[in-house]
Amino acid sequence: MTDGNQLISIGTLAKRTGVAVSAIRYYETKGLLMSLRTNGNQRRFLRSDIRRISFILIAQKLGLGLTEIEQELAALPQGRTPTVKDWQKLSRSIRSQLDAKIELLTKTRNKLDGCIGCGCLSLTRCKLYNPEDRAGVAGPGPRFVLGSAR
């Protein structure tokens, strides 16, 4: 058995990743991880699942939901250590999502700097002023900052 295919207990996986055992069980029920069972019905995970959980944690920090993470991890092989090529394919797959999030964050930061930071409080010049609720036709939410109301 290669290093990445070495089996480890759920406790070891939790300790190595900093994730609670209950969260690992939850990830398993969502199909993000797959355990093998011993004769005593104890869970064993591939050592390489440390990387899977690391990806889950990073993806969550980047704003991906568990459904998106589940879809991405479904492309990785189960039962063997993912190769560099496998991880590169996954990286390419989420790159456009990350680029879109970066663009939205940059746009939002710039608008917040300009609008909230300006201090004008003018009902005629302020870019956030919404006379007669014109932005309402575009739907609910913060249209001037996160969407396009004008």
Rank of each mutant, 00 (worst) to 15 (best):
R37G: 01
C126G: 05
L90Y: 00
R125T: 09
R43W: 15
R44A: 08
M1V: 15
R134Y: 12
L36S: 07
K85P: 04
E103C: 09
S148N: 09
P82M: 06
G114F: 15
D113R: 09
V21P: 04
V137I: 14
R16T: 11
C126N: 05
I116L: 14
V21I: 13
L98Y: 01
L90R: 01
G18R: 11
T12F: 11
K111Y: 14
D3A: 13
Y26M: 04
I24L: 09
K101P: 00
A75F: 01
S91M: 03
N39C: 03
N39P: 04
S22Q: 05
E28D: 14
L62R: 02
R47C: 14
G18H: 09
R51E: 13
F144L: 07
I24H: 00
T2E: 13
L64N: 06
V145F: 13
W87K: 06
L123S: 07
C115T: 10
E132I: 07
R92S: 10
D133I: 03
R51K: 04
P142R: 07
S48T: 15
R43L: 04
R125L: 04
Q97K: 04
A135G: 02
T2Q: 05
A59N: 13
V21R: 11
A20Q: 05
L90P: 01
L123Y: 01
E28P: 09
V84L: 11
A149F: 12
A149C: 15
S54A: 13
C115S: 11
K107D: 13
D49W: 03
L90V: 03
A14G: 12
S122D: 06
E70W: 06
I53D: 01
P131F: 03
K111G: 10
S35V: 14
Q78H: 11
T12D: 12
L123Q: 04
G147E: 08
F144G: 03
D99I: 08
V19M: 10
L90N: 00
E70R: 10
G141Q: 00
A74Y: 04
T124C: 01
K15T: 11
A23C: 06
L7M: 14
L7F: 15
G117N: 12
A59H: 10
T38G: 05
R92K: 08
G18E: 07
L57I: 08
L13Y: 07
T83V: 02
L73C: 00
L105A: 12
S35T: 15
K15P: 08
I58H: 01
L7V: 14
G117T: 13
G114K: 14
N5D: 15
S9W: 12
G63K: 02
C120R: 01
S91Y: 01
D3K: 13
L64Q: 05
L57W: 02
D99V: 11
N110C: 06
F144S: 02
K30L: 15
E28C: 13
E132Y: 10
M34C: 07
N130T: 09
N130W: 12
K15Q: 14
R47D: 09
R92L: 10
K127Q: 14
A74I: 00
L46V: 15
R80N: 03
K61F: 11
S35C: 15
E103L: 14
D3I: 05
L105T: 08
M34H: 11
G31M: 08
G147D: 08
S148C: 07
L98Q: 07
Q97A: 01
E72T: 15
G79D: 01
A75R: 08
I58L: 07
T29R: 05
L64V: 12
R143N: 05
R16Q: 12
G139C: 03
S54M: 09
P77V: 04
I58E: 03
F55H: 13
